[in-house]
Design a protein around this nucleic acid. Sequence first.
DNA 1: TTAAATTTGTCAATGATTGACAAGTTAATT
DNA 2: AATTAACTTGTCAATCATTGACAAATTTAA
Lengths: 108, 108
Amino acid sequence: MKATFGEYIRQLRTDKGLTLTELAALLKLDSANLSKIENGKREFDEKRLDKLATAFDLDIEKLKTEYFGEQFAKKMYQYNCSSETLIVAEEKVNYLKSINVKQTEIKF
Amino acid sequence: MKATFGEYIRQLRTDKGLTLTELAALLKLDSANLSKIENGKREFDEKRLDKLATAFDLDIEKLKTEYFGEQFAKKMYQYNCSSETLIVAEEKVNYLKSINVKQTEIKF
DNA sequence: TTAAATTTGTCAATGATTGACAAGTTAATT
DNA sequence: AATTAACTTGTCAATCATTGACAAATTTAA
């Protein structure tokens, strides 16, 4: 796995021999913007994770793990959060699940 | 610690016997909006964490931990992410620190 | 050199967040 | 019960960040 999500996409794309234009078409975005995403100058929109999974036949669960893992890491780095933050996050997500057994919206 | 950040603020505020209006003034926001924050209908802006710490003489580190821990938990719940996400986050934040020893911006 | 691929810059359109205020309800006090 | 303070809710324009789109420049490969 690459260090950043953008590099990861680039890896996938070049491994498959696709151009920016070709992959951009699959992801329904401009090739110039995909370039920026791969170079870490723009965010990859979470709404397109499913398209990305389809394009490369990836496990959506692993993809979400990478994507959100990176999002959280960037925030933590930016605000210099302690690793305790992740422990709290785990507690809180378990709490959310426990009080709301019925998953109202499944995004993927 | 309360389950949500809004409830946590409310706890702090009522413990100190402050009204919404009084605390809102300290945080430089409208009391109506503070009410929504406490009731989970609006987000607490991260830019105000330092004001909150000052108002209640709290450890800013603990406050960040609670705040971002909750943010991450909400995302994970919303997108039904696996707990692996947090492990990846930890790896990535360590990686970010290792490649960028010099902290360019310290927010707090 | 030419053509394809990629990068960069810019900007208007879009969308989400926020601040502000009015109007409503609830709770406490007299 | 009437009055007042505290809180809640709804709304909307202003603000801010994100996105899509395109042109132009640069790099890479043939």
